[in-house]
Design a protein around this nucleic acid. Structure first.
Lengths: 357, 357
DNA sequence: CGTCTTTAGGCAAACCTTTGCCTATGACGA
DNA sequence: TCGTCATAGGCAAAGGTTTGCCTAAAGACG
């Protein structure tokens, strides 16, 4: 039988080669070619010589499988959806770097959506991703309201969902690192800036700080806690929170901020109030974003292994996709923080600090 | 088991509704349903009542079209590929925010790939994106070597490609803003930090600076130019470049850095050398990334409208996809910079600065 | 010679949607 | 009566891949 016997569709020169093109070219059925190219078990009955011919032709014609067709047939799109609050900000982007690396390594692509912490956008994004037939989802610092029906991994997410693995920092350890560092320097009047209410880590971090303080016999003055407000992720929030702290009558020699970005805002507010950092007030940040080291002064901070967390998330979601019922998924994967001491902390001033109001 | 399968295919309760499900449900052909749901012109012969029934059933069964099947049939995936050097860094992420907004608005999703300026990764990414059958591409600060065969928009890209629209800053204007600002303050000894050789803007920016300097009769001492080195995008590069400037024998009262991130590194290097910013050396950055305002001192910088550039790119690529031969695409879209004066610039010291070596 | 197994692959359904072309019925005018 | 036209949809191919099941020939074995 000649290859041309079948309703020969002339291959337009521009069009990419499909299995049909190869089939026509080789005089073999598409089925055989597909099996060989995919190294399917059923291809073992096909002699080496034929297999070589097939591979050679695929290379010669520059055959690339059509992922849409393949995804349709297999029910796998090799794509996961990634939900982040914001793409232009330190925390999520560092996690994202890890996610990207982990996913690409495994051959997955990802759709990125940023939801700016807006609930209805989160909901919509979730269904849009399902509609796009992603194979799984990773949500970073995101509060999922709909229970996901897809393999899902969360990073620092507040709410628990059946079957969802959450990748979290060891908050207890993190709080201890910061509090013990400040106590060790001699600080006894420590102000704390909590995160925005929508932020996933806010509550657990705060619990951990209270625990660590109690353990170190440090009294936390309620007047010395402020909270980030507003949904923008910028430095301003820390700036204003610090101004509120300064406006209260209580004095403090150290400040533990919710994250580096707000710590940077805090430094500015302190400075504008005539206080030197760290001589008058020590400041500890959180996260260790890239610019933390290059602040003036260099920011002492609790480092989260953000890239690692992203990679773990990627690996976990891939595992969950490819081996769904392997073993019941872990509820949590806990990673450990690390204290990075730079220049924004030092012992408290010997005398009462200048500001005493 | 039940009467539900009378030769028809029983709809498993978990499976999503397809057109076939609706067809069975309504007693209409899939073709009719497809046409109505897509408001195809051919649906105009179908009476309103039937159309309503179809819409109602689609809503009731929560029908969502399968994007893979649709993409396969239509040859449109409603996805574009976005190439950025790095996702954890100020410049690209701001552009990305704009891109995201523009694309989602138009119903497109995007695959994000960061290539870290590695040529072979750029090449691979390009073909991977084509293999993923994206409808178009946006490349940010990326040097494309393969000529793209897809609708493509570039943002700040160095090389020209037939049919590719490049979105660029008005570098001439940008350089004038910075140089004129410094000259106006009285500076005559201005150091310049050029970008890495791989960075797209490096060459055009440098040309523009030379032009603006000449126009303002400012002599640029070759000993007072340094270049960012290494492929990491962090502050360190600016730090080391500034150290090299300081190590040379020439003195300067102002420094114009390639971008904000390197300017921040520069400030640190200057400070470590015992120089005050801005009293001894004024520093001008570029980009106006989010942290520029919250540096200490606040960074005077040339703002690029990065979000806008991203949105323009998204809109342009969508236009190119949906109306390919509308009119020949623009070679360039030029956007204008803006000078943001903060605290890192002031008149030069009256006497020779402390450092004179 | 008959039967079984291996080798070498083919057929066609399935995944789901879109779309070019077709039919059938009724109304209407000439 | 015939032709035309609008209405109301249906049929089936196409898009490219994967996969369960099949066949046909050849060799092995008894």
């Amino acid at each position: 039988m000649t290859a041309s016997e079948k309703g020969q569709k002339a291959r337009r020169p521009g069009a990419p080669a499909s299995l049909a093109t190869l089939s026509e070219h080789l005089g073999l059925s598409v089925a055989a070619i597909s099996r060989v190219l995919n190294r399917a078990p059923a291809a073992k009955s096909i002699p080496k010589a034929t297999q070589d011919r097939i591979f050679a032709a695929a290379a010669a014609l520059n055959y690339r499988p059509n992922v849409l067709a393949r995804g349709l047939r297999r029910g796998r799109s090799m794509t996961v959806g990634v939900l982040v609050p914001e793409v232009s900000e330190g925390y999520a982007t560092l996690v994202l770097t890890g996610i990207e690396q982990g996913l690409l390594q495994a051959g997955y692509f990802y759709f990125l959506i940023s939801h700016h912490h807006r609930d209805e956008l989160i909901d919509r994004s979730q269904t849009m991703l399902v509609d796009r037939s992603v194979d799984g989802m990773i949500a970073v610092d995101t509060s999922l309201r709909q229970h996901p029906h897809l393999p899902t991994i969360t990073v620092s997410c507040p709410d628990e969902h059946e079957g969802v693995t959450n990748i979290v920092l060891n908050h207890k350890r993190a709080a201890e690192l910061a509090i013990d560092h400040l106590m060790g320097l001699g600080h006894r009047e420590v102000a704390v800036i909590k995160g925005q209410s929508f932020s996933s880590d806010t509550e657990s971090r705060w619990q951990a700080i209270r625990y660590a303080a109690a353990r170190a016999s440090l009294a936390l003055d309620p007047k010395l806690t402020a909270q980030l407000e507003g949904d923008a992720p910028g430095h301003e929030t820390g700036y204003f929170a610090t101004q509120r702290l300064l406006a209260s009558s209580a004095r403090f020699t150290a400040l533990f901020a919710f994250n580096d970005v707000s710590a940077i805002g805090a430094v500015r507010a302190l400075r504008e109030a005539g206080l030197r950092v760290p001589q008058d007030v020590s400041v500890v940040g959180f996260d260790d974003v890239q610019s933390a080291a290059f602040q003036n002064p260099g920011l002492t901070t609790v480092r989260q292994p953000l890239r690692t967390m992203g990679m773990l998330a990627a690996e976990a979601v891939v595992r969950r996709i490819t081996a769904p019922e392997d073993h019941p998924p872990a509820k949590q994967i806990v990673v450990d923080p690390e204290l990075v001491v730079r220049e924004s902390t030092c012992p408290p001033p010997a005398k009462r600090p200048a500001r005493s109001l």
